[in-house]
């Protein structure tokens, strides 16, 4: 299965029965997969007239209390930001997939990690965050898609699943049976399904014209984000026990970095990998702890340097932080990263 199709099947496995999509490369296989798959399981797929409509259909479906998903790629994801802000403000659970591509503007259709700022810093207007999960293999897509729906339901929040064109297009064998099915959707008493049999009318809105009331509402959101930060940090650590150096990388780049690390180890360089799996909440504490014992840290991204800002904030100057990035859809090679590891050891030696 292609990565995009794995997301679709993983969503079905997680109990998602509603999908509102719009074509954009390199995520279109997911839309096509859902169009075929959801009717087979009694769900509903609908192709919207735009990404904007798709995310607002998600808002409507989430209002009715079901597990629902939409997907896009960078330019289309930008169009969804208004809707994501509304979902966050109205506290509606949904999963939004971004199979990112080169930007800015129309950019190209090659893999990129240049949407990091957008997905981890809110993205739309207002004080909000969305949990962001970044798988680096197709098997991990299965477990993180499930997690995305769990987090969305548990905290009543939109959750972003972030991949890139490479992850979406690549093929790998995956096992679904290893994953425990997500429990059925808990009864959502807040859902607007008609009041029949359940008391006074319910309202779903993000509006509060009273400033004090809105501040109370916003503080409640912030408390929720604090709880997510405490409980939902995910990070993958590789060969860090004896490491003098560490690479911080996520998603596709983390796979390449891992191979480079294996080769560096053969050359006798003690380097490991810190792979943030949740980009928000960012694994700042873990990076902070390692930075006290590391000689240097290298951040590798398919961007001009976005996650490195969070890495530097976490490190707080306790170790030098270097950066290597490729942009425009260019994927860094193992050799390039290996060279960077060499550079790291030289720079620190001076």
């Amino acid at each position: 299965m292609k990565g995009n199709e794995v997301i679709g099947e993983a969503a079905v496995y997680a109990g998602c029965r509603y999908f509102f999509g719009y074509p954009i490369t390199p995520q279109s296989e997911l839309v096509a997969y859902m169009a075929k798959r959801l009717p087979e399981v009694g769900g509903c797929f609908l192709q919207a007239e735009s990404e904007i409509s798709a995310i607002n259909m998600v808002y409507g479906a989430a209002s009715a209390g079901v597990r629902v998903m939409t997907s896009s790629s960078s330019p289309g994801f930008s169009l969804k930001q208004e809707g994501i802000s509304y979902l966050a403000g109205a506290e509606l659970p949904a999963v939004i997939v971004n199979i990112a591509r080169g930007g800015p503007g129309l950019g190209n259709i090659q893999p990129s990690q240049a949407d990091y700022f957008q997905v981890t810093k809110g993205g739309g207007h207002g004080d909000y965050y969305t949990p962001v999960l970044a798988p680096s293999s197709l098997q991990e897509i299965v477990s993180l898609t499930r997690e995305a729906f769990r987090i969305a339901d548990e905290y009543r929040t939109p959750v972003i699943l972030l991949g890139d064109g490479m992850l979406g297009q690549m093929m790998e064998p995956v096992e679904f049976e290893d994953e425990k099915p997500l429990p059925k959707v808990r009864e959502k008493k807040w859902a607007t399904t008609g009041t029949k049999g359940d008391g006074p009318p319910k309202t779903i809105t993000s509006l509060d014209l009273n400033d004090t009331q809105l501040e109370i509402r916003n503080n409640t959101l912030q408390q929720k984000y604090a709880a997510i930060k405490e409980k939902e940090v995910r990070v993958d650590e590789y060969l860090l026990d004896d490491a003098a150096y560490a690479i911080v990388a996520y998603g596709t780049v983390a796979r390449i970095a891992r191979t480079a690390i294996d080769r560096a180890r053969k050359k006798g360089i003690a380097v490991g990998l810190i792979r943030p799996v949740s980009l928000w909440p960012f694994p700042a504490t873990i990076i902070s702890e390692y930075s006290s014992v590391l000689k240097a840290i290298l951040t590798v991204e398919m961007s001009a340097g976005q996650m490195i800002e969070d890495v530097r904030l976490a490190v707080e100057g306790k170790a030098p932080v270097f950066f290597y990035g490729r942009t425009g859809g260019v994927i860094p090679t193992v050799d390039e990263i290996l060279q960077q590891i060499d550079r790291l050891t030289e720079e620190v030696a001076i």
Binding site: Y18, F20, C44, L46, A48, I52, S53, A54, N56, M57, V58, Y59, G60, A61, A62, S63, A64, G65, V66, V68, T192, T193, G194
Partner: peptide, 10 residues
């Protein structure tokens, strides 16, 4: 669009 989402679910 929101009404469409509701309609398709309810």
């Amino acid at each position: 669009a929101v009404a469409t989402g509701l309609r398709r679910v309810l």
